[in-house]
């Protein structure tokens, strides 16, 4: 594995491609700085993200690690280096998205009576049938039809969101909000949708990617 922190042409760079997960990068960085002692003291560090995307919270975490060893994060002139622009995503959505360390990947459909609980995010590669339950501390993403009960942000995170390829849950909960589809109306939407809290209410909107 290549080093996280590299020095080239008198410039120090954190290479995000060197590790697989953000947690690994943090650990590696911490270790490298510890062994280097005050060799790099007072220097500025830039970040090479490559194809990875960093959230503002992750940036902040790197900043605290660096400042703990007498270094500072050099803000690049172009936004592209932090990965926001280059990825072509709506930056506002990523700014609002709460950050969770762990994401569980479920590679099957959930049938009635089956229940998934995770403290972080959950991604389901399959359907969630009526009678199944998905409860997560973070965000919930269903790459199939969501017809069961989901509860995102179960520890009270209002910013958590639920997205599904087809969003038609029996009940949808975010933090302390409980919603259900209206009686008598059959709403058929043939596109991926996103549910999140806006202005104290759960709103369903088209998922724009």
């Amino acid at each position: 594995m290549s080093a996280v922190l590299k020095s080239s042409n008198g410039k120090m760079q954190i290479n995000m491609q060197s590790c697989r997960t953000f947690a690994e990068i943090k650990d590696q960085l911490e270790e490298q700085l510890k062994t280097a002692g005050d060799f790099w003291l007072g220097g500025g560090v830039s970040i090479e993200t490559g194809h990875k995307v960093l959230s503002s919270k992750q940036l902040e975490e790197i900043q605290t690690i660096l400042s703990g060893h007498g270094l500072h994060l050099q803000t690049n002139d172009s936004e592209a280096s932090t990965g926001f622009e280059s990825s072509g995503h709506d930056p506002s959505l990523f700014e609002q998205l709460p950050y969770y360390e762990d994401t569980a990947l479920i590679c099957k459909s959930l049938r009635s009576g089956q229940k998934i609980f995770t403290e972080g995010n959950v991604v389901i590669l399959g359907d969630v049938n009526p009678g199944a339950e998905v409860v997560a501390g973070g965000n919930i993403l269903v790459m199939g039809s969501l017809r069961g009960m989901v509860h995102a942000g179960v520890f009270g995170d209002d910013a958590a969101l639920v997205a599904a390829y087809r969003l038609s849950p029996t009940q949808l909960r975010i933090a302390s909000h409980i919603t259900r589809p209206p009686d008598g109306e059959l709403i058929v939407v043939q596109c991926p949708e996103l549910a999140r809290i806006r202005g104290g209410k759960v709103c369903i909107e088209k998922l724009k990617i």
């Binding site: 009960m149 029996t170 009940q171 409980i178 259900r180 589809p181 009686d183």
Partner: peptide
Amino acid sequence: IGLRNLDVVLGLENRIV
């Protein structure tokens, strides 16, 4: 318990908390 149906027959499934 485990195979509930009565709520579905009554059309009240989505109100269960």
